[in-house]
Design a protein around this nucleic acid. Sequence first.
DNA 1: TCAAACTAAATTGTCGACAATTTTGAAATG
DNA 2: CATTTCAAAATTGTCGACAATTTAGTTTGA
Lengths: 238, 238
Amino acid sequence: MTKLRPKFKIVDNMMPAPVSNLKVTTRAETVFTGLRQRIVEGEIAMGSKISEPELARYYDISRSTLRDALSRLEGSGLLERKANIGYRVVTLSTEKLLELFRVRESLEGMACYLAAQNMTAAQIAELRELLADHEKNEALQQGEAYFQKAGDLDFHFKIVFGSANQLLIRLLCEELYYLVRMYRFQFGMASPRAKKAFTEHHNIIQAIEDKDGELAEILMRRHISASRLNVEKRMNTL
Amino acid sequence: MTKLRPKFKIVDNMMPAPVSNLKVTTRAETVFTGLRQRIVEGEIAMGSKISEPELARYYDISRSTLRDALSRLEGSGLLERKANIGYRVVTLSTEKLLELFRVRESLEGMACYLAAQNMTAAQIAELRELLADHEKNEALQQGEAYFQKAGDLDFHFKIVFGSANQLLIRLLCEELYYLVRMYRFQFGMASPRAKKAFTEHHNIIQAIEDKDGELAEILMRRHISASRLNVEKRMNTL
DNA sequence: TCAAACTAAATTGTCGACAATTTTGAAATG
DNA sequence: CATTTCAAAATTGTCGACAATTTAGTTTGA
């Protein structure tokens, strides 16, 4: 197993670092980010037990530092912890996925409502551009690429940010979207909806541009609800 | 400053502990709970810097253990952390309170919708009983007691649990409600609504009993939205 | 006097070791 | 053979110390 941290830090910056270097990062934070990705992508299997000594060796850090990272992952909903037992990767299930859809339906619906009030013309233009890019890429590639790739989530992200509600942004972007991505990676999302999704996204943008918050909310809720129904249908036929 | 932990643990349980003793608790967990209460009630002022050495001495634990507790508080949204700077108690503001209302409006609306589908007759009866109790107490005490005290939140809690959506329950009960209580303690919630709130709660229960999820959701959203508007109005007149 | 530079103190980040608890698995019992 | 008991091993919880970074205070220089 490869060492992930060089023994000595190479120092060649005798000159003051670039003034706006905002990346004040700590080992725990780095490991947190790394682990998050490995969990989302399933390299560390869902439901698997976390061995602190083993992971600490893997990253060549102490257990204390690792635990710092693990506690953040628990906050992100990717790990669960039991006293005196330890951490375990969250277990995915269809039932939990349906619950997640319900929560997204409600939160993103609200985000969309607020986005209609708060997004600037520039932001909306940016959103349209994003969607156009995705459509262009989609035209080239095969059917289910859009849903699988980050494209769809980019769109949802931008709207959530457009809500300008910091709490909403934190809940969705820092806690729930990593779970969403985890489901997409490991369940491979349902995507007979690839084409319909574009239309729905277009309609949502239009409602936002018209400053019609109530419509925008309804459209977003239907958009997410449709995905949920898709999963429910699939679940019942199996 | 008083020591909060006795030097020696008194051992008088030579017999096996009660079989269903599920309270496996750790020092970090205990301190977490204690700190949470002190923060919510404002004993540790909002916005104040957390001194790890000082708090560790106060609870007579090591910094590692304290940090475990602090990281959980960050997960609960009561502390904020900056790398190399440390933890700080969240700062409350009217703007953030309005954001919180928006999130509650959306999540509790959904919870209410689901509760109408999932609550059993027994649960609904329990809910009615709770409300009746509150009304009885309210009749005795002065006007604004209901809102101030835990009564109102009890009602909301029960509905959230009635949703049977574990994710929703976790988000609302573990992450957001402590913030809500913190605002009530430290801002002293607006309560010309004390009487109206009872009526609204009754109507919500009725909709749930009728299994009319859509109405239940709308009523809950209006109920919370009314509180938000109250705060907005007050904000504009100052 | 004010601001920049430097030094000392305090705070957070990280480490390794020990204690408490759980898990493993072998031995004992029926 | 299945179940229980018990001891050893492994894992998590907790501790205190050191390193890295930030903060406070003092000195210096214009």
